[in-house]
Simulated scan of single mutants.
Amino acid sequence: MDFLQIFVLSVVQGLTEFLPISSSAHLILVPIFTAWEDQGLAFDIATHVGTLAAVMLYFRRDLYQVSVEWAHSLKSRRLTPSARLGWGILLGTIPVGLAGLSFKGFIETSMRSPVILACSLIGFAFVLSYADWRRRGARDEYSLTWKDILLIGCAQALALIPGTSRSGITMTAALLLGLNREGAARFSFLLSIPVTALAGGLQAVELTRSPGLVHWTPMILGALFSGISAFICIHYFLVFIRRIGMQPFVIYRIALGILLLVVFGPKL
Score class of each variant (00 low, 15 high):
residue 3 F to D: 03
residue 7 F to H: 06
residue 19 L to W: 15
residue 22 S to V: 07
residue 22 S to H: 11
residue 28 I to V: 12
residue 35 A to N: 15
residue 46 A to T: 08
residue 47 T to R: 03
residue 48 H to R: 05
residue 52 L to P: 03
residue 54 A to T: 04
residue 58 Y to Q: 01
residue 59 F to M: 04
residue 59 F to T: 06
residue 61 R to N: 09
residue 62 D to W: 01
residue 70 W to G: 10
residue 71 A to N: 03
residue 74 L to E: 08
residue 77 R to H: 15
residue 80 T to E: 00
residue 85 L to H: 01
residue 85 L to C: 07
residue 87 W to D: 02
residue 91 L to A: 14
residue 93 T to M: 04
residue 97 G to H: 08
residue 100 G to H: 07
residue 103 F to R: 06
residue 104 K to E: 15
residue 104 K to F: 11
residue 105 G to E: 12
residue 108 E to L: 09
residue 116 I to S: 10
residue 119 C to Y: 13
residue 121 L to F: 06
residue 123 G to K: 03
residue 125 A to L: 04
residue 126 F to Q: 05
residue 129 S to C: 02
residue 133 W to C: 00
residue 135 R to C: 12
residue 135 R to S: 15
residue 142 Y to I: 00
residue 144 L to H: 03
residue 145 T to L: 01
residue 151 L to W: 03
residue 153 G to R: 06
residue 155 A to R: 04
residue 160 L to S: 07
residue 161 I to G: 05
residue 166 R to C: 09
residue 167 S to Y: 12
residue 169 I to R: 13
residue 169 I to W: 10
residue 169 I to Q: 10
residue 174 A to I: 14
residue 174 A to S: 15
residue 179 L to W: 08
residue 182 E to R: 15
residue 190 L to P: 04
residue 191 L to T: 08
residue 192 S to C: 06
residue 196 T to I: 15
residue 197 A to D: 02
residue 198 L to C: 14
residue 200 G to Q: 02
residue 200 G to S: 02
residue 201 G to N: 08
residue 202 L to Q: 09
residue 203 Q to N: 07
residue 210 S to V: 00
residue 212 G to E: 06
residue 214 V to N: 03
residue 217 T to W: 13
residue 224 L to I: 15
residue 224 L to V: 15
residue 225 F to S: 07
residue 227 G to T: 03
residue 227 G to E: 02
residue 233 C to V: 14
residue 233 C to L: 02
residue 235 H to P: 01
residue 236 Y to G: 04
residue 237 F to I: 09
residue 239 V to R: 15
residue 240 F to I: 11
residue 241 I to M: 10
residue 243 R to A: 14
residue 245 G to C: 07
residue 254 I to H: 12
residue 256 L to E: 09
residue 256 L to M: 15
residue 257 G to D: 08
residue 261 L to Q: 12
residue 265 G to N: 10
residue 267 K to P: 00
